[in-house]
Amino acid sequence: MHNVATPDEAFAGASGRDSLPATPTYFERPMLKAPHWEWNVITYLFLGGVMGGLGVLATIARDDRDDERRLRRSARYASFALAAINPLILISHLGRPERFLHMLRIVKFKSPMSLGVWGLILFSGAAGANVARELADAGVLPRWTRHFAPSITTPLQAALGAFVAGYTGVLLSATAIPLWGAGKTHIPAASVCSGFAGACALASLLATIEGNHAVTRKLERLEIVAGGAELAILLDFKRAAGSYGAPMFEGARGEKLRTHTLLAGIVAPMALNLIGSAIRLPKPLDAVRTTAASILTLFGGYVLRETLIEAGKASAADPRAAFRQPR
């Protein structure tokens, strides 16, 4: 095609475009359709991760330690609450309540959305059963109701929780959006980490409110691990994604990722948490520190999802990335 003035070239002078694109594309038109997802889906994904992480925490926590006992209870309540809220957020995205029911017509193993919804429902069931158990233990419900929640629901909630947290990543990575596809292992793994960290943060926050300071140390250590893993995964994602990663890691969005997600959402709470485990601060100050760390982590979790979605939209608009889609 030498000597051929492509539309780009022919127009370059006329439109005052500064540099010619490397590969001629179709008028720089996007080849792919961008996601129609806004705050509600971002929130749905974020809360799904937190909710799932809480389910795991509730299982890790032991009955015979008071602090962990209380953690388990608050984690169960919180994850059940989120499991109740999340479908409402999804419905707000779908437009009408009965549309959610269409999701229940089938189970489709190849659709992360389908599996995720069923996972969410089963998780809600397990969470509900476990909440019932807590309520029975607390005497709110008659004690015999405890029998309706078999002991299997505890590990089940953990397993489903892990799934729910992970599926929010697969939901993105198993799409045609080049950026997301390039993160086919990173995004699910990072989602799980973010979910765990978020769960730890939320649990710490609740524990701080409750005055259950003993457990916050444990949670914070786990949060450090999850945050560290997330950081490592995201950095590796940047490396592995190469040019597909540009919409996420470069430019203004990359800057936001670095300052908001990585620095404010991961590094800062990690540092706060490390301070917490290294130095014993006065109680009120420590509560502030924990609260700050938790809020930053949760903020980081939301911003990660937001960045992923927004960068996904930008990635969809890049025809060059879409011409050769990541395997």
Binding site: L101, H102, L104, R105, I106, V107, K108, F109, K110
Partner: peptide
Amino acid sequence: DLTKMLSAGEGLRLSERVGM
């Protein structure tokens, strides 16, 4: 559609419809 799917006849073939 949901109720129909679960009702007799439709429901019997549910197994065919769940899966990949």
